[in-house]
Design a protein around this nucleic acid. Structure first.
Length: 112
DNA sequence: CACGTGACATACC
DNA sequence: GGGTATGCCACGT
């Protein structure tokens, strides 16, 4: 699978994550058909972070992936809070996670 | 080719 | 809860 193909899927999927919700890197990888390759997602986001909802991606434990207090971390926290996401100490509450049933809904809309 | 590193995850203790 | 260990994959050195 080419890089651009992955970028395509990531963009598509992130476009379907509703406001006020977040997904983990691992889940995102799963949805891309790349189970176990969460680290690849971070790599991917560095190239397409410009015009998509990259801020809705957090780690599986809820923490923002950037160093707490860094500019990027602050920016992400800001965007999430504006959407109504509860962020405490750079960690989002679990209730905002897109969970399994939601994923099936998302998958049903994907072109593959 | 061998390591180290990184927007990660899981399983333990 | 935190800390360590291991698995994971792409990249640079």
């Amino acid at each position: 699978m080419s890089d651009s193909a992955i970028n395509q899927k990531v963009s598509t999927i992130l476009g379907m994550v509703p406001e006020g919700h977040v997904v983990s890197y691992g889940l995102l990888a799963d949805l891309c058909g790349l189970p176990g390759r969460a680290r690849l997602m971070g790599k991917c986001l560095t190239t397409i972070s410009a015009h998509i909802a990259w801020h809705r991606v957090v780690r599986s434990d809820g923490k923002i992936a950037f160093p707490p207090g860094s500019d990027k971390a602050n920016e992400q926290r800001e965007k999430l809070v504006l959407e109504g996401v509860v962020v405490k100490n750079f960690k989002v509450s679990m209730k905002h996670y897109l969970w399994q049933p939601d994923l099936y809904t998302v998958l049903a809309k994907l072109p593959y």
